[in-house]
Every structure is written in structure tokens, then in C-alpha cells.
Computed example of a mutant assay.
Amino acid sequence: MPNLILIAAFTYRPLISNLYFSTLNWTLGSPTASVVGLGNYVTFFTSPDAAAVLGTTAIFTIVTVGGSMVLGLLVSLALNLKIRGTTFARSAVFAPFVLSGVGVGLVWLFIFDPVYGALAWILRGLGQSSPQWINDPQLALTMVIVVYVWKNLGYCAVVYLAGLQSLPNDVMEAAQLDGAGSVRRFVSIAFPLLSPTTFFLLITSLLSSLQAFDLIRVMTPLGNGTSTLIFEAYKQAFGAYNRAGYSATISVILFVILLAMTGLQLRFVERKVHYA
């Protein structure tokens, strides 16, 4: 009962309140608000910025999830080798994932700074000028994606590594005795057996990317080309607009997307590969 009370007070009550706020034309701090029903939803989906926000969210999510999983799988294969130094390498790879997103964003801002940054210094040494990472919308999105993938690929690598180490040795040894090379064993046996791990990472990474905020806020405070749904909700409520009702509407749209992702997880999570 105490747990249910806490969940109701700090999870479901704010959720229901946010649904109600999304039906209001309310300026943050104003003591009054007018009911507009679904007006905020109509405004969002008919706004010329909606396509850009949804497109940015889709690009950021797809690239970060795909990049983190692919690179994480490749790194896990290297970490699974029985050589010296793998314990230190595993710790080094996983370390960025547990670091503060604000701290990571500030460090990488210094690296990407077109005037004083480390990358600009290297490019000047090669006779090249540094791109305007922050001012160019496309480059700003690329910059944030690179940093987010760097920060999160360690999580995918560790989870994939756990999956690789739990594969049945008798199956892998039988394939090796039958003459299957390392590439063939991975493509035909190991990767299909990793399907539960892949599906788990796909769902968790999708949910995490859709809620990514700290790196975007720190590295691109104005959201120049990096306005995802969650960052757009923040800007509408706490930026120059103070449109709390409209911000709540964007939050509800994001909630529906996250709920759909969670539903997929609950629907397909039982489709596991059994090793026994």
C-alpha cells in the first residue's frame, strides 16, 4: 500500500494532470487558463514546425539506436576475446555510460568548439578550417548524435558481451568441428542466438533515445536543428514562449510514442531463444 500511494502521488497524478493541462491554453505562471479541448493537438500537427520536430526525433532516435547497437556489438566481440587487458578495456568502454550527461556535453563542447576546441586545433594543424558545428543545424544534430552514441555504446557492448558469454559452448564447438569459420559461426549461430539480447537492447535504447535531453540541452541550448519532442516540450514551457498547455500536449504525444514502444516490448518479449 505505501508503494502504491507513492506511485499514485508521484507518477499517475502528474500524468493525469499533464493530460488535463494539454487541453488548456495556459501561459506558465498565469493564474488563469482557458479550455481549448484538442486545440493544442490540432495546432501542433498543423504547425510547420511539427514535421521538423518529428523528423529530427526520428533521425536522432534511429541513428543513435542503430549506431550504439552496431558499434556495441563490434566492441563486444573484441572484448570477448581471451587476451590480456580485457577487464580494463571493459571498464573503459562502459565508463562513459555512467558519467553525467551534463559533464559529457561540456567536455565535448570544448572538443567541437570551432575556435578554441581540440578538434579545431587538429584541423588547423592539417591546414583545414573547423566546421561551425553549433551554428549549422545539420552539423549540430550530427555533433549531438556522435556524442550520444559515444556515451551509450558501452551499455550495448556490455549487454551484448553478457549475451555472447552465455551462448552454449557445445553448439559453438560442434560448428567449429564441422569446419565453420569464425565469421560463419557468428552469422549463422551466434547472432541468431543473440536475438533476445538484440530485442532487449532495441527497446531499451529506443526508450532512452526518445527521452534524451541533457546532452541536447547542454550542447545546443537554442535547439538549432536538434529540437526533438522532449526538447521542444521544454522550450515551449520554459523558453521564450511559456506555453505550458502546448508543452503538455507535446509531452502527451511523446508519452503515447513511449507507451507504444513499451507495448511492443510486452507483446514480443516472450519470443526468446532457449538454449536448453
Rank of each mutant, 00 (worst) to 15 (best):
M1G: 13
M1S: 14
P2M: 13
L4Y: 15
I5L: 15
A9P: 11
T11D: 04
Y12K: 00
Y20E: 13
S22D: 13
S22M: 10
L24M: 15
W26G: 08
L28D: 08
S30P: 05
P31L: 02
P31V: 02
T32V: 09
A33W: 00
S34F: 05
V35P: 01
G37K: 01
L38C: 07
G39W: 01
N40K: 03
Y41K: 05
S47A: 14
S47H: 08
P48C: 08
V53D: 10
T56I: 07
T56A: 02
T57Q: 13
T57R: 07
F60K: 04
F60N: 03
V63P: 08
V63E: 08
T64A: 06
V65L: 14
G72C: 07
L74E: 00
L74P: 01
S76L: 01
L79H: 08
K82T: 09
T86A: 14
T87I: 10
S100D: 13
G101V: 06
G103D: 12
V104E: 10
V104Q: 10
F112W: 09
P114W: 11
Y116V: 07
G117C: 10
A120W: 06
I122Y: 14
I122K: 01
L126Q: 14
G127H: 07
S129R: 08
L139V: 03
A140D: 07
L141S: 06
T142C: 10
M143V: 04
V144H: 00
V147Y: 04
V149C: 05
K151R: 12
G154Y: 06
Y155K: 01
Y160P: 00
A162C: 07
A162G: 11
V171N: 00
V171S: 00
E173M: 05
D178L: 04
A180T: 04
F186V: 02
V187C: 10
S188W: 02
I189S: 03
I189N: 01
P192R: 06
L194C: 10
T198P: 02
F199K: 03
F199G: 08
F199N: 07
S205P: 00
L207Y: 09
L207V: 11
L210D: 11
Q211K: 14
Q211Y: 05
A212F: 10
F213N: 09
F213S: 08
L215Q: 05
I216R: 06
I216T: 06
R217E: 12
M219Q: 11
L222G: 15
G225A: 02
S227W: 02
K235L: 15
G239E: 13
Y246G: 06
A248W: 10
A248D: 11
F255Y: 11
M261C: 15
T262Y: 12
G263Q: 13
Q265W: 14
R267N: 07
F268I: 03
